[in-house]
């Protein structure tokens, strides 16, 4: 069983990220996934997180207790949820938005900057999803691409897939640097 938390601000696509990952795992990888979300009353700018439990068998308890992966897209998200990470867990951050000082394994990516280069910072979460997919390997790349196709409006599919692949390649590069 793998527990994942995406966290950031409302408007960054944090909950959408959880939905895309959950859909990829439960529908396209034919495993099991449960997603829950937390957000404040604000439409944008409030603290926001989604928690996803992934498993090969039916999921019983639907919330995360000790996360295997924390994806932090704001400083606030990092400081709120860093302690929840398992000792052997992995922290993934947007390097321009989070200053991390964690003793846990950390990977960083300038996802928002990359999204801006692609033409729209709104797809920073999809860059991040690509990065997460490469680093974590908890879901197949093919399933994630199918899930993105089903989760975004038709005219934005290509842009989102480019964003996903940009993040994925960055993750691949980081992993090979590690080895």
């Amino acid at each position: 069983m793998i527990e994942v938390r995406f966290a950031g601000f409302g408007g960054q696509g944090i909950i959408r990220s959880g939905l895309i990952l959950g859909r990829a795992v439960s529908i396209f990888d034919e495993k099991f996934a449960t997603m829950n979300q937390n957000f404040g009353p604000e439409a944008r700018g409030g603290a926001c997180s989604s928690q996803i439990v992934l498993s090969d068998t039916k999921i019983l308890y639907p919330y995360v207790t000790r996360t295997d992966y924390l994806v932090a897209m704001s400083q606030d998200a990092y400081s709120t949820f860093e302690h929840e990470l398992k000792d052997e867990g992995t922290l993934i951050i947007d390097v321009d938005l989070v200053r991390a000082n964690s003793n846990k394994k950390t990977y960083d990516i300038p996802s928002t900057r990359m999204a801006e280069e692609l033409g729209n910072k709104i797809i920073a979460n999809v860059v991040m999803l690509g990065f997460f997919t490469a680093i974590s390997k908890v879901v197949s790349k093919e399933a994630m691409e199918k899930s993105i196709r089903e989760s975004v409006p038709g005219r934005f599919i290509d842009l989102n897939l480019r964003a996903f692949n940009k993040g994925y390649d960055w993750g691949d590069k980081k992993l090979s640097e590690d080895n």
């Binding site: 959880g18 939905l19 439960s26 996934a33 997603m35």
Partner: peptide, 9 residues
């Protein structure tokens, strides 16, 4: 509330 907002296949 919990079963209402929980997302699963």
């Amino acid at each position: 509330k919990a079963v209402g907002s929980m997302v699963e296949a």
